[in-house]
Design a protein around this nucleic acid. Structure first.
Lengths: 319, 319
DNA sequence: TTGAAAGCGCTACCAG
DNA sequence: CTGGTAGCGCTTTCAA
């Protein structure tokens, strides 16, 4: 009672208890406490691969905020595999986590699984409207549109898009934005200029190889993320194509690597760390108030201009 | 009893129980089980920053192996701060983790803390002989020596070293290796050619700036890790110094970025993922057999030659 | 082979 | 303000 700050404890007792605590090095067993209070003070974090710098940043944001609040974070890698996702969720649930942060939910993820859990779920990065959970991320339609329009404004007319796998709202939204931009610019949408990758460097490289062999050559490429953009740039260069001149390339994310002069990728900056922090905050808030309305938090993105888009500007640009 | 495979259960009962389990969607409460068995089936992972690709890879290795074995991984970031390390350890301990993986132990870390824990501890990457724990990592003396000797063999005579902070055996060992190489090559060790960084890109950049202004210019730089090496390269280039020609640069780690053509860092490859996997295995083994002798597992490293060392060779080289 | 009962360490409740 | 007691969901022991 002393340790839990129960009001009604005399100072004398309080002192004696505290002394004993110190002397014995007593630390409450959070496991037993959890069993009793039905609160484990731990949350789960599901991501596709912690090695991916995108998720690393989010994870750090989540953990920082969680630690502040006395929560522990249990993480699991799913490699974007639906089965692994389900197993991961169940595994975490049986550990009695108080809430769950999902970073790579798929539109095909079975809602029952999450609804039956009986614990709050927050979505970071990808929406999943059919789940009705709290969400934090950027407006990916606008992000895709902004990236494409930037190239259009700088005279690019034949824009290709390397999109992420279907099943991710982030990928779908960026495609939508790309199409919107084409339409606004009065450019025709062409199916063959959209190539699907899996957000990895390798898939970007392959897409780049493919696009670089096309004639007429596309004069602009919007990639669904930085990793694929960097892969595509490598591929284009290996084909003797000058990035920033023959072809303008833009990514989405602004991971650290993109800022290296040898890479110099123009991109749409996504505030990943903040997404993690905010996501965790949404979760903590909902743990406190389970029945408040679902919150959808849209953070701002900005264009980060470097060499790969060939517009000659270096710096950031709010959009 | 059915779920725990108690031998003495009739087939009839077993069937009925299993049916009920399925129907009700029963999942054992691991928390309650932990309270009773004193085993939580979870382990702790302490690292300085999950955003650092070095730790991301280790974390993935640990989690993969842990998940295979039915263990959950709780991670905490310490930013290499000793106080945060202690708090992190206590925080994890009160959650009754079955074991702990430490990736950035400091030589000054108080042994009592770890010994009093009463749970197995495994060290990954950095040794800490005063703790007497299991360990997995590479031979950093040899790594530092191999890197330096490589440059020496290619004619470099004025080798600088950007070392990591004191308090890390990995950093100290690499310095030792660097000195050994100089000695073997009959080169004088010069204090002023050793600059201390904190393993970050920024500190590498600053060190590079500093070294690049020295006259005579060092003709080779061994960095304590890739992040600092990349920072140093940027700095040198910004000074108009040609990396690979005027100055040869080598790092240690071989993080993914280093392989990008625009970076092309020659480095000593450390098997990070395997270190994570093996570290987790050592831990699981010790959880089973707490009193077996301490194991020290030294994994092989290899030289990965790219453009930054200017030796004209591209590829891997076992050492 | 079965089921009843005790108890892991904690918190919440309640009577003193 | 204090301390005793019940019980969280599980495993383990023991008697039937």
């Amino acid at each position: 009672m002393v340790l839990n700050n129960r009001a009604s404890v005399s100072l004398a007792v309080r002192g004696r208890v505290l002394a004993a605590v110190r002397e014995l090095g007593y630390r409450p067993d959070l496991m037993a406490r959890a069993l009793r209070t039905r609160r484990s003070a731990s949350i789960g974090l599901l991501l596709s691969d912690i090695r991916n710098p995108f998720f690393g940043d989010i994870a750090r944001g989540v953990e920082d905020r969680a630690r502040d609040a006395g929560y522990a974070v249990i993480f699991t890698n799913t490699d974007a595999d639906p089965d692994a996702e389900i197993r991961g969720v169940y595994g975490l649930a049986s550990r009695r986590i108080d809430g769950l942060v999902l970073t790579s939910i798929r539109t095909t993820s079975p809602p029952e699984v999450y609804q039956r859990l009986g614990i709050p779920v927050v979505l970071v990065n990808r929406r999943a409207d059919h789940l009705g959970c709290d969400f934090v991320g950027i407006d990916n339609v606008k992000a895709g549109r902004d990236a494409a329009l930037h190239l259009v404004w700088h005279g690019r007319r034949r824009l290709a898009h390397i999109r992420g796998l279907p099943g991710s709202t982030a990928s779908e939204d960026r495609v939508t934005g790309y199409r919107q931009a084409l339409e606004e610019a009065g450019l025709a949408f062409c199916d063959s200029l959209v190539i699907t990758g899996d957000l990895s460097f390798k898939s970007g490289y392959e897409a780049g190889l493919e696009l670089g062999r096309r004639r007429p050559l596309p004069d602009g490429v919007i990639a669904g993320n930085d990793l694929m953009a960097i892969g595509a740039m490598e591929a284009l260069r290996s084909l003797g194509i000058r990035v920033g001149e023959d072809v303008a390339v833009m990514g989405v994310d602004d991971i650290w690597v993109s800022s290296l002069p040898g890479v110099s990728l123009s991109t749409v900056r996504q505030p990943r760390y903040e997404m993690g922090v905010k996501g965790c905050e949404l979760l903590l808030a909902r743990i406190e108030q389970p029945r408040r309305g679902a919150v959808r938090l849209i953070l701002d993105h900005e264009l980060v201009l470097r060499g790969s888009c060939g517009c000659g500007v270096y710096g950031r640009k709010s959009v």
